[in-house]
């Protein structure tokens, strides 16, 4: 299997000491390149870090099992992995919904705050992130999806378009609407 636009394993393994991970060479490379993206996407949508780690593990385990069926002509590796991640997150949230534990609490967000100098500022920032994430969970799944791809996985509009199989214009419109709806929910929660 050959990955689009990537270096041949034979030449890479001679220079890269990390090449021997025990995984298939292509998959090993995907893991190193895309695991942080997948994790951030999952973490943005899931209320606590432990669950996000579990779901990320499931994503790569499923991808490893389905490696033979991956078709490079249909999707780039990251798009494929994010597609698996979307399904895994949906399954996870469905199971959580039955237990009504979708909400984030303050003790679960410290890993989402970085580069904040003072403790006081950090607490305020945590509260704000908590409010934003809880508000985002009130949105429709499609809105949550597109916000997670942009602000969680950190994808650009072009990459989101590829992942969702829609046009760049459609991405911009959907993002705009999702942000507007998020703002309404945040303000409503603030008033309440």
């Amino acid at each position: 299997m050959k990955i689009r636009g990537e270096v041949e394993e034979s030449s890479r393994s001679k220079t890269d000491p990390r090449a021997d991970s025990g995984l298939p060479p292509d998959f090993s490379e995907w893991f190193r390149d895309h695991q942080p993206t997948v994790y951030r996407y999952v973490r943005f949508r899931i209320a606590n870090r432990e669950a996000a780690e579990d779901v990320t593990s499931q994503v790569f385990m499923k991808a490893l099992k389905a490696l033979d069926r991956y078709d490079p002509n249909r999707a780039a590796p990251r798009t494929w992995l994010l597609r698996i991640a979307r399904n895994a997150v949906t399954d996870h949230l469905r199971s959580l919904k039955r237990r009504s534990s979708l909400h984030v609490s303050l003790d679960r967000v410290p890993d989402l705050v970085a580069d904040v100098p003072s403790q006081e500022e950090r607490v305020l920032r945590e509260e704000r992130i908590e409010a934003l994430l809880n508000a985002s969970r009130e949105l429709k799944p499609a809105d949550q999806e597109i916000l997670s791809l942009r602000y969680g996985a950190g994808l650009g509009n072009r990459e989101i378009a590829e992942a969702l199989k829609i046009s760049g214009n459609a991405v911009a419109v959907r993002l705009h609407r999702a942000l507007a709806r998020l703002k309404v929910v945040v303000e409503k929660q603030r008033r309440d």
Partner: peptide, 26 residues
Amino acid sequence: ELSGIRIEERPSFGPELEGELAEAWR
């Protein structure tokens, strides 16, 4: 504001997961 959310994963998470995947692959 949303773009400013920095998601930091546990440093050992990636290597641990890679090890588990390698074990599963074996």
